[in-house]
Design a protein around this nucleic acid. Structure first.
Length: 151
DNA sequence: GCCAACGTTGGC
DNA sequence: GCCAACGTTGGC
């Protein structure tokens, strides 16, 4: 799951511990959010930063959450086509698990995985929520273990 | 800041 | 329903 650190980064999640992942306004990304279940783990990815990459881990603690921002008239995620009876945007509530000692850069992920193995590595991919194979996720977690801490 | 890739909008 | 124009994302 991607977020720009300037907007909401892993440090913000570590501080808040729990958050609703609101503001996703892409149908494909929303469908992936809808498929998530309580207990699922997700990587936190920093986009639009240098270098971009995976910075930590979080856990889904509530599924099928109606995104409240779609009803916020003054917010940037307001959707006039959404109604309380038929909301268009669902998301998840997540909890901070941990920040990696050092981030796993996109370049490293590209070195290690093909775009078939890891969708996030595919050039031109703009999806902010993407599925990941268990096997690949385990390898990434292993990579995180082996990272040397930054001071 | 540039720009390729992609999604959305809207005229027809 | 097609597709050109436009807006956005996000790596570099």
């Amino acid at each position: 799951m991607k977020s720009e650190p300037d907007v909401f980064g892993i440090a913000d999640l570590e501080r808040d511990r729990v958050t609703i992942w609101d503001g996703v306004r892409n149908y494909q990304a929303r469908n992936f959010l809808k498929s998530m279940e309580v207990g699922d783990l997700a990587f936190f990815y920093h986009s639009n930063t240098s270098p971009p990459g995976i910075v930590g881990l979080m856990q889904i603690i509530e599924a099928q959450v109606v995104d409240p921002s779609q009803f916020d008239l003054d917010g940037e995620y307001y959707d006039p086509k959404s109604t309380i009876i038929a909301p268009r945007w669902h998301t998840v509530k997540i909890e901070f698990v941990r920040t990696f000692n050092s981030q796993i850069a996109l370049a490293t992920l590209r070195d290690r995985f093909t775009s078939e193995e890891l969708l996030a590595v595919k050039q031109g991919n703009r999806l902010s929520v993407m599925p990941i194979l268990d096997r690949v996720a385990e390898q990434i977690l292993q990579m995180a273990e082996n990272l040397t801490p930054i001071n």
